[in-house]
Design a protein around this nucleic acid. Structure first.
Lengths: 223, 223
DNA sequence: GTCTATAGGAAGATAGAC
DNA sequence: GTCTATCTTCCTATAGAC
């Protein structure tokens, strides 16, 4: 099967986003590359290391992929598509806007905890992409931001939220969830579910005003 | 002046953390290295590019530095020391704990916006450090977390904060500020000061319960 | 302290046997 | 489709002239 037909279209948002790649050699190569990218970076990873860890020779990599960058693009694209899919699905949650945003933050955070390795590559190795590939990813990123922003805007329009800077809140919520991929580790004290629950609670607080006239000695929030 | 005596001890937390490096050739090299590290990563940066951008030959780099890693360590260390210094200074703010935490979040966020390039290197290139250097940085990172956590703990002990997971809140506050270095750009719509103000307001909200009995249809916050 | 030159090896990618 | 062998380029770091 020539390299153009590597199948990675069925990324489900589940646990291993590269598991549907066919054939098996391409899948092993992608897994090996992702492991190395996420631990020592794209620039610190050699094609020889990737091949070796996949149990193949150095030349065999180029049967499945045109270049090292193509593997990076694969990881980055699959990651962004999966995260966007999860966020879009959560944006269909019925009920109040606040409830929907809680669900969106829960799922988006959970996704970044569970997929922290591929998410890290997707967030931190954008500079390694070709300009064409970079632009394709940038479009996915704009869509992610748009899904979150439009829900927050809806809450503001309905008078549900007590905030003055929708764009800032969008950024903060996304940032909090995305940064999970930087520090989260599988063996830590915090389960992905607890973290997602905690963060969805924080979003509730961020979208409501503080309890009463709590002392505000400094500058005010979100002007 | 031999390489052991490159002077970078006076990093002030101001605008250019590498500006006090002497002699000038080492300073130019460090600046050039930081530029490249922050845009294409440590692994994607070559010593030749660093030397060239500093206006020196490829061999001249090794007069000021033992290796490429030593420059990375310099950037990483200066960055962490400066951020820790800013946070420590803010932790001396008089008044209520809430007020103090607002100031800490303001300053820490402002620092990450103003120093986003060096902060990005410091956060994302830890894997490039030698084990010895990595451990030195890890100690600074523990101290940063400790300063933030102890203030939040103090607020809880005094009954000022309505939260149940101090460690989680510590993580969230630090994470929000640190992630600024990933997405912040100097030419953006948001000034560093406005962002810091916004984020210090968010911390206030995160540390207080929501306004009234706002509908909570899903899981509860911060169990 | 800066240069040129180069050692010595490793990088990405390709060719051709099987 | 995988291998070994190799092309060409580039890498980090050092040596030695000035």
């Amino acid at each position: 099967m020539p390299k153009e037909f590597v199948d990675f279209s069925r990324a489900p948002g589940g646990h291993d986003l590269l598991n549907d790649i066919e054939p098996a050699s391409a899948r092993r190569l992608a897994h090996a590359a992702l492991d190395s990218f996420s631990s020592v970076g794209y620039g610190g990873t050699t094609t020889r290391i990737i091949s070796e860890r996949a149990g193949l020779s150095s030349g065999a990599l180029y049967v499945s992929f045109k270049s090292k960058e193509e593997i990076l693009f694969l990881c980055t694209r699959v990651s962004h598509e999966s995260a966007l899919g999860v966020l879009r699905a959560a944006a269909e949650t019925p009920g109040s806007v606040m409830n929907r945003l809680r669900k969106m933050m829960y799922d988006f955070t959970l996704w970044h905890a569970r997929n922290h390795a591929i998410a890290r590559v997707a967030q931190y190795e954008l500079a390694g992409l070709t300009p064409e590939h970079h632009e394709l990813i940038a479009e996915l990123r704009r869509q992610i931001e748009s899904v979150m922003r439009s829900q927050i805007q809806l809450g503001v329009d309905q008078g549900e939220f007590d905030i003055e800077d929708q764009a800032g809140l969008t950024l903060a919520a996304l940032s909090l969830a995305i940064d999970v991929c930087r520090w989260y580790s599988d063996g830590g004290r915090l389960s992905a579910e607890r973290l997602a629950d905690s963060y969805s609670g924080l979003v509730t607080r961020m979208l409501s005003s503080s309890r009463d006239g709590a002392p505000r000695e400094g500058a005010d929030a979100l002007r």
